[in-house]
Simulated scan of single mutants.
Amino acid sequence: MDPRKMRKKPRGFTARYLGSAKNLVASERTGAADTQLGMALTFVAGAINAGGFLAVGQYTSHMSGVFSTMADNLALGTFNVVLLGLSAFVPFVVGAGCSAILINWGRRHHLGGQFALPLMLEAALLFGFGLLGWIAYPSVGFSLIAVPLLCLIMGLQNATVTKISGARMRTTHVTGIVTDIGIELGKFVYWNRDKAGPDVRADRAKLRLLSLLLSSFFIGGVIGAIGFSQLGFLFSLPFAALLLLLAGPPIAADVLAHGRRVGEG
Rank of each mutant, 00 (worst) to 15 (best):
E264Q: 14
L18H: 11
V178K: 09
K22S: 15
I183T: 11
M1A: 14
L185A: 01
G128W: 08
R261W: 10
G57P: 02
T42C: 15
V140C: 00
S61G: 07
R11L: 14
F129P: 02
S64T: 15
V94T: 09
A116F: 06
T160V: 05
G65D: 02
M169H: 10
A71L: 14
I103W: 01
G197R: 09
K195G: 09
A257C: 06
R108F: 07
R193D: 11
L234Q: 04
M1H: 13
L83G: 07
V81L: 12
G57Y: 06
W105H: 10
S87G: 11
R260F: 06
L84W: 10
G259Q: 11
I177Y: 06
A45C: 14
A124M: 13
L132K: 02
L212M: 12
V94I: 15
A252F: 11
F188V: 02
F92K: 02
S211E: 00
I164Y: 13
I135R: 04
E184S: 04
F235A: 12
A45W: 08
L18S: 09
G224K: 08
F92E: 00
R29A: 12
R204L: 15
A88L: 13
S211K: 00
L207I: 06
A205P: 07
A45T: 12
G106E: 07
S139V: 01
L119S: 06
L131V: 15
V90C: 08
P118H: 04
Y137R: 12
N192M: 04
P238V: 06
F89P: 01
I135F: 09
L237K: 01
L37S: 09
A241C: 11
G220D: 04
R170Y: 10
N80A: 15
A40D: 00
M70L: 12
F239D: 05
R7Q: 14
P148N: 05
R168S: 13
V44Q: 04
R208N: 11
F228W: 00
K206C: 05
L125G: 03
F67I: 14
W191R: 14
L149R: 01
T60F: 05
V94H: 03
A202R: 06
V82H: 00
Y59W: 10
G97H: 00
F67P: 00
T35D: 06
T179R: 08
A40G: 08
V174H: 01
A124T: 07
A225T: 07
S229K: 14
H258A: 15
A40S: 13
V200Y: 05
I103L: 04
L83R: 00
G19P: 01
H173W: 07
A26G: 10
R208W: 13
M169R: 03
S61C: 05
F129G: 01
F235M: 04
T160C: 11
L126H: 07
Y17F: 15
F67M: 14
A55V: 10
V262K: 03
A88D: 01
G130Y: 08
A88M: 13
V25P: 06
E184D: 07
